[in-house]
Design a protein around this nucleic acid. Structure first.
Length: 556
RNA sequence: GGCCUCAUCGUCUAGCCUGGCUUAGGACACCACCCUUUCAAGGUGGCUACAGGGGUUCAAAUCCCCUUGGGGUCACCA
């Protein structure tokens, strides 16, 4: 392991929305790279877009990072992380610093004021587009204005941006992952470095902060590749050092589209349109909100709204954000492992590893150059494997914590003993922590609330054949009533005994299914003896009675 | 469209830099069978890829060129 005490990496998200998997992987790699080399990992909040920033979101980010096990040496202070001598780590609190450097550039003639309106620029852009050319800002627009005029306009408060006077010449980017790339002269135009609202643009703030915070290595997504050229010319103009760059491959959806925070809304909107909905489904959002959302491809519902809408439309929302995966019951170490595997591998057939291994082995020369499609099915397989490897106690603890956060009603309805039995019956078969709750709703239902699924499978289990499932149930009720030790083993013993006398020893399915449907209302549940044991004797009997009652008239 | 960039099974990838050890390895998925009390889980076996075309070389997945295809970017968003 290389030990570079001065090595400093950073993760610099804009606090809009939650941390999504792409961002999480960027953070993970930066973190692992620094940690594996005795360096420092810095977290910086890029909140220079006044329209988008929100404090709640930046806290969401911090929580997500913490959950993944990614801590930061410097940055916003949160649960024992953060602090540091190079603050503030919020860009919105560093305006004075940026302005100092901005002024310096203007005075040196390396940057200039421009007064073009949005409308004017739009025209120029459209023109470029119509000629099938890339749009580049035309410096002569600004040159045409005399220095006196500039001063006069500034004095009267005419809105102005500051643009960087990009030097002529090709720009070569050194990238530790992709190698060198050279952008021909003219590819980078005079980009804006301070917006009319007085805030620096991303490009300017990044360059200043990376220098002042001593960042030595920048690992970020490939979509930033072209931006790096801008950052390099700025660094040169300001006399800054140039960090080492590595551009990470993007993460895509299985269909090849870019994984985006908006994917959930995209799916919901499409479903709503396919169903030709003109009004919002009940219990979702109001009509005004609905039509505004439906009409604007870029608008997003908040989490509660989106969840309600998905329920109403009867669809599953894709997990995009780290928080979505947490909610779905994935283990943080599995998320990190799988995220790392999308874009990096240790170089042999090893795929399962923890963060300590990642820190010790992560290096830029093994980072993939091509985008990866995020395969949730494989992630699920990894999660199952990790769950199976957990001790019963550890699994139980995680399930409990998960349930208390995401299924408090469920947890309140069941006893500690029931919980333990459920955990035991589910451990080997749970792909996620959440599955245990989603798949066992029958347990949290009161005996009088239970309803029986109207499905072919249910009918078959109860009504088909002679004797039918219902006939069996009648007999089984008596058998169960006589069971003295109400445990999976005790129940099994009694039932098997009865089955043998009834000549059904080899056809236990003819017994299990009617029972299962009788007490759970559906054809799917944990193994039947576990199911009965978890439910308890009186509930089981009561439910069988209700089932017999309900279907007594339905029998054909 | 300009510029930049990438290219191994359906997917994530090993091998490529330092050409022969590769009838291209692993994992997930898929298929078949087994187990089985539903759904899973588990077991065994199987299918599947070097984008195409030219070079260079005794020898190319590995080096070079072209084509094709993919991606990124072209904001007073980051």
């Amino acid at each position: 392991m290389t030990h570079t005490p001065s090595l400093r990496t950073r993760f610099a998200p804009s606090p809009s929305g939650h941390l999504h998997v792409g961002g999480a992987r960027t953070a993970l790699f930066n973190w692992a790279y620094a940690h594996g080399r005795g360096g420092k990992f810095i977290l910086r909040i890029e909140d220079t877009d006044q329209k988008r920033s929100s404090d709640a979101a930046s806290v969401g980010f911090l929580k997500d990072l913490k959950w993944l096990g990614i801590d930061w040496n410097e940055g916003p202070e949160f649960e024992g992380c953060g602090g540091g001598d190079f603050g503030s780590y919020f860009q919105s609190e560093r305006l004075d610093i940026y302005n100092k450097f901005l002024e310096q550039l203007v005075q040196q003639g390396k940057a200039y004021y421009a007064f073009d309106t949005t409308a004017e620029l739009d025209v120029a852009r459209k023109e470029s587009k119509s000629r099938n050319e890339a749009y580049r800002y035309d410096r002569s627009r600004a040159d045409a204005i005399s220095p006196e005029q500039v001063q006069a306009w500034l004095k009267e408060g005419k809105p102005a941006v500051i643009r960087f006077k990009t030097p002529a010449g090709a720009i070569t980017i050194h990238d530790e992952i992709l190698g060198d790339a050279t952008l021909p002269a003219g590819e980078v135009d005079d980009f804006v470095i301070r917006k009319a609202d007085g805030f620096p643009t991303y490009h300017f703030a990044v360059v200043v902060d990376d220098e002042l915070m001593g960042v030595t290595t920048v690992l970020r997504a490939q979509e930033h590749f072209n931006n790096t050229a801008k950052h390099i010319v700025l660094q040169d103009a300001l006399g800054f050092r140039r960090p080492t760059y590595g551009h990470l491959p993007l993460i895509f959806n299985p269909d090849g589209s870019k994984m985006s925070k908006r994917d959930k809304d995209k799916l919901l909107r499409k479903t709503a349109q396919d169903k030709k909905l003109t009004a919002p489904p009940a219990n979702t959002v109001d009509a005004t909100r609905f039509s505004a959302w439906l009409g604007d491809k870029n608008s997003q519902l908040d989490f509660a709204e989106a969840t309600a809408m998905a329920t109403a439309l009867n669809i599953e929302l894709p997990e995009i954000n780290v928080d979505d995966f947490r909610r779905s019951g994935y283990l943080p170490q599995v998320m990190c492992n799988f995220l790392a595997l999308n874009g990096w591998g240790p170089g042999n057939d090893l795929e399962k590893f923890d963060n300590a291994f990642l820190c010790a082995n992560f290096a830029l020369d093994r980072v993939q150059k091509t985008a990866a499609k995020f395969d949730r099915v494989k992630l699920l397989a990894f999660n199952l494997d990790a769950i199976q490897k957990l001790s019963r106690e550890a699994f139980s603890g995680l399930v409990k914590a998960h349930g208390e956060i995401y299924h408090p009603e469920f947890m309140k309805k069941i006893t500690a003993a029931q919980f333990d039995l459920l955990v035991a019956a589910s451990h080997e078969r749970s792909k996620t922590l959440d599955e245990l709750f989603r798949g066992n709703r029958w347990l949290a239902l009161g005996d009088e609330e239970l309803t029986w699924e109207k499905s072919k499978q249910v009918e078959k289990a109860l009504l088909a054949g002679t004797p039918s499932g219902l006939d069996r149930l009648k007999e089984l009720r008596g058998v169960l009533e006589a069971v003295e030790t109400w445990t999976p083993a005790g129940i099994e013993e009694s039932i098997r005994q009865w089955a043998t006398t009834a000549g059904l020893a080899e056809q236990i399915g003819q017994i299990a299914q009617p029972l299962r449907v009788g007490v759970t209302g559906s054809t799917v549940s944990p193994p039947i003896f576990d199911t009965l044991a978890i439910l308890g004797k009186s509930s089981s009997l009561r439910r069988i009675d209700r089932c017999l009652q309900d279907f007594a008239t339905a029998k054909t």
